[in-house]
Amino acid sequence: MVSFIARRVAAALGTLFLSSVLVFLAVQALPGDVATQVLGKDATPDAVAALREKLSLDRPAWERYTDWVRGALHGDFGTSLVSGKAVGSEVSMYLGNSALIALITVLFAVTGSIVLGILAGLYRDRWPDHLISTVSLVGMSVPEFVVATVLVLCFSVALPWFPAVVLYGPDASVGQLLPAVWLPALALAVVMAAYIVRMARTSVIDVMASEYVTTARLKGLSTWRVVTRHALPGAMLPTLHVIALNVAWLAGGVAVVENVFNYPGIGKLMLSSVQNRDLPVIQAIALISAVVYVVCNLAADLGAMALNPKLRTRGRTR
């Protein structure tokens, strides 16, 4: 079991290393000269030379890569080309604001979708199932910006309960941001829940058809007890991976929703840094997202192991 965990952690670290190389290559090896890309076509040769100096572009790529990774491990991601501030502190400020949204989203989406998924699974092919399945199909079929726009139309225009846009900068306090968090979180939760509901429904149906649930029923246990004690752990197993993937998806999903609400989070920073070709910031965000993805997957793997004794003894097959 220890070796299983060790192998998973080692694989995760390997993936992270490869991701960092890919991110670095993708951003640095963009076609054309990076300095000209950043400054635009009409930049003076002096300015280009100065920026090349600043980014130390004349050194070989692998040297810059090792410098970057060494810095990143110590929390130093370089300085932003636009604001001139340290990338690490800037990104973490935006990241904190996004974490607020992400936390509420995950809370809403996971609890809501598991309850709905179990309901749909238990009432298979009856009206609760049809209703839940149809709604989740629609939820899957509309992009986040549409959900966000519709929510704004309902809850800030028709019913002025929540603000439609955030007027604060990235250094706003939690108290200032809190009223503005709910609509973006709800928009993301709707899209995210749609996927989890379908997964949870399928696994509940699978588990309810299994022999151990039949046995539990034959023992005379109440439906509530059968569901909570026997069906739920089994059904959670496949659902865990979908949840992990969705949490990782959040890192990208926030980009769109935050722009709808002008919310000062990591997604907004991502978009503006792509527009301004702020390479150090793009690299930092990509690397942090990769860490989130890898950690979520690792957590799902280990969680699955905790729920399923069979996996603890199984070999490395996936």
Partner: peptide, 23 residues
């Protein structure tokens, strides 16, 4: 498998934006 895992770790919208801004 390893390389694909590494690509998957980068959020798709960010990867998309980087490619589009570059090209």
């Amino acid at each position: 498998g390893r390389v694909l895992d590494a690509v998957l770790a980068v959020p798709s919208i960010l990867a998309l934006l980087v490619v589009v801004t570059a090209l």
